[in-house]
């Protein structure tokens, strides 16, 4: 009897079951197919294209030196200033939207829409479903990110030729790391709820408002470094595109009697650590929650 690739000898009678890794691949494959057929993938793609279109129009209309000025005192390469303006200002927003669109209801939807009933009763581990769906969301998000990066680089090549600064490659790598952490987080929240709209709403509020607000309050009012907030860790994406990497610095309050303070800037090792810890912690928690959750 011939053996299918990726199958194990876990048998009952004459049945050969694929390995869990192979089953993860199957879930990922059909999850991506599902995304490609869904409206949300194209809506996210359209949002990315609209943002790119606005930037393209701004640069074309006002001129690249006006939109992304490179002053001789602070800027050594105009190309870096361009990528900082374009990529540094917008990519975290695109990543957060990807997380909300693809991760917000990835697990809760299985309960609310009852699609989980079709999958879970099959001979595969729940962790295979979770990981497969997560990988599907990651690949779909990376495709959106790649298209967005392609448009950014396309404009960069048009204005500056093949002079793509290495910092952009670093920033792109950090963006993917941030995407991984965001998807880990959104999947965790998706496992927490059984209602799709609730999980999407909570993750959207957290990423679009709450984290930024908490970071602002903690850093400016409480005056402690917000190392425990994921969006603070994502600061490395924009910081690495600056001519001189920003550092944490004391500041003097304006005018007499003004309060002294500190402006916090996340370092690259700190940022990587924050994003990794967020991903690992939320991935484990989300997986445990999904394993324990009941289809009642």
């Amino acid at each position: 009897m011939s053996k299918e690739p990726g199958t194990s000898v876990s048998t009952t009678g004459s049945r050969i079951l694929p390995t869990s890794v192979s089953q993860v691949g199957t879930i990922t494959k059909y999850e991506i197919l599902n995304y490609f057929r869904s409206r949300r993938f194209f809506i996210l793609l359209a949002i990315g294209l609209i943002i790119s279109g606005i930037f393209t129009a701004l640069v074309a209309y006002y001129g690249v030196s006006n939109v992304a000025p490179c002053l001789p005192s602070t800027c050594s390469t105009p190309a870096l200033a361009f990528y900082s303006f374009w990529w540094g200002n917008s990519i975290t927003f695109v990543i957060v939207l990807s997380g909300i669109f693809f991760g917000g209801d990835a697990i809760s939807g299985e309960f609310q829409n009852k699609t989980g009933y079709f999958l879970v009763a099959n001979p595969l581990r729940r962790s295979s479903i979770y990981i497969g769906k997560w990988l599907g969301a990651l690949i779909a998000s990376v495709i959106v990110l790649a298209i967005y990066a392609g448009i950014t680089v396309g404009n960069g090549l048009f204005y500056f030729g093949a002079n793509v600064p290495f910092q952009f490659v670093e920033s792109l790598s950090f963006s993917i790391l941030y995407l991984i952490a965001v998807l880990g987080f959104t999947f965790f929240f998706s496992s927490l709820f059984k209602s799709s709209s609730m999980s999407i709403l909570v993750t959207a509020i957290l990423f679009l408002f709450a984290f930024s607000l908490i970071q602002l309050i903690v850093a400016n009012l409480v005056q402690i470094e917000p190392w425990f907030i994921i969006t603070y860790g994502s600061g490395i994406i924009g910081n690495v595109l600056m001519d001189t990497y920003p550092t944490t610095q004391p500041i003097r309050g304006p005018g007499p009697g003004g309060r002294d303070g500190t402006t916090y800037a996340v370092t690259i090792p700190e940022g990587i650590m924050i994003l990794l810890v967020y991903f690992i912690a939320t991935a484990i928690l989300g997986l445990v929650l999904f394993e324990r959750k009941e289809f009642t």
């Binding site: 009933y117 009763a121 581990r125």
Partner: peptide
């Protein structure tokens, strides 16, 4: 679960 359900076909609560 994998081994137990490998020999089971099921239909529970009209899945979507």
């Amino acid at each position: 679960k994998r081994k137990a359900l490998s020999s089971v076909g099921s239909l529970i609560e009209s899945p979507e």
